[in-house]
Nucleic acid binder design. Sequence first.
DNA 1: GCCGTAATCA
Length: 620
Amino acid sequence: MSYRRLIPNSPHHKIPVNVLGTLKGIKNQANPSFKTQTPSFLATNLIKSYFEKGLIKEARTLFDEMSERDVVAWTAMISGYASCKYYSNAWQVFFKMLRECGDRPNAFTLSSVLKVCKGMNSVSCGGLVHGLAVKYGLVGCLYVDNCLMDMYATCCSKMDDACAVFRDMEVKIPVSWTILITGYTHRGDGHGALRVFREMLMEKVETSPFSVSIAVRACTSIGSSTCGMQLHTTVLKCGFDSNIPVMNSILDMYCRCNLFSEARLCFYGMIQRDLVTWNIFIAGYEMSHPNESLYIFSQMGLEGFTPNSFTYSSIIAACANLAVLSCGQQVHGGILQRGLEGDLPLANALIDMYAKCGSIMDSCRIFSRMDRKDLVSWTSMMIGYGSHGYGKEAVTLFNEMVKAGIRPDRIVFVAVMGACSHAGMVDEGMSYFKSMTVDYKVPPSQEVYGCVVDLLGRSGKIEEAFELIESMPFKPDESVWGALLGACKAHGIPDLSKRVAQRVLESKPNVAGSYVMLANIFAAQGDWGDFARMRKLMRGTGKKKEAGRSWVEVRDQVYSFVVGDVIGPHILSAREVIELFGQHMQDETALNPDLDFLFHDSVCGASPCCKPNYADLMNI
DNA sequence: GCCGTAATCA
């Protein structure tokens, strides 16, 4: 047989161990049928071994050189390709098999092919295979049914079809239930997933660490800590609390539900933790308590864990939230040291961090050195430019992005329009607003409208902004009205302010901030009666506006303060900084005071400085 | 005899 040539002469490898084992085993048992073994049997064994070792071409050559191929050989080829994610090759083989193979596909074949359909995310191919399964009487076979369910649950989330298959199954095993629960969870239907899980418990089907942790994830996705806590007790009852991934999912649930004391109990109660445990804990604190996140990061190092890209992306975000440049630079040093600078999400996080820490040139440098950029990279850079007042640069970047063949989404438009707004580039901003619906067919959201109102408002086109809001295709929310109210306040337009005020109160009567802003507008007009009315209304809601907090970083320390703070050593530092700012502002504006700065935080034309040397940081 | 299913957390 010609394919036998491959075995002794192959330059790449020896005969796979298990084939040798099989041959040896047959010889040792003095199997009388050894000499009459079909070539297909040996070749199929070898095909499987080749795929397991990633020798895809060799498997194909061997298969092509086989003079006779039975259904098992064809199936081995299909499942081999599927295991390497070569789905289109697998599908081609299946199609060829239907034409050329004398045998019918069996249950093994169809379950492999269904996995291929799932991999291709093709419900039309899957439907075809379902038809064949019916034709050949293979529906009802456990593996085929499970694969059909999985294909429907994964491809386009056809959960109804997956449920129909599940309902008709005479025998359901725990795998069948897990497939269904996973399907619901992955399409974001946590309620559906939990319904099935509950049914599974009621039917006394055996649970596994897998099914439980998926159910926990379903709770997390719908933000139900009540269900999450019930599952925590289930985990303890089943003795799954020694399983790290299960406990990680519980920890993640507590963090995402903002139950930090429970999260701490869970974390410190874990006998064993892995890198994922630490990453979940760090990411959990990143948004609401970024300083705590940095502390946990330092503890993680002390316990001998090496951070990976997940760790760094949370830590970089924490530095960005705290706007602590020196810390961010040190973390960047760690990223370079571990050779993770090529990681796309990390590079994106660094762009954002440097921009938020005031070092836009570093954002630019990272952005320009990236080999690969995604939509997030471009958006982060545009947001950075916008917040620094570089409207023209943001516009240029947007055009470059489109030229690079990247399709803008709603968030990019918010970024570029926000940049235009901050830089006072009203016409450019408005042209993007038109272009997004006309040229790019991106429907505007509340956020987009808020952005346009802000754009018009900052340039004094208050009436136009008001008309735009009135013409919105959906009910404007408080962010849109808030943008207009801010503009009214800035430009001191009493009549319109009162009209807008009414709308704000109608749309969000329970937000203390709305009353405070309105009261201030009235105060600015000397309308003390309405001022008092607003303060009284606010007291009536029983809510208080959270004080706006500012912070400065001085000599490696972050100082936080509110208006009117008088006590504490940090106030002294804050005052020093404010005096410094005052001096800078005087120097900049002494000759040409620019009153536009009241409305735009534009710094166009100023050249950004900075540039820490990362080579030095490598040695930290 | 050789071929087949789900799979948790950042």
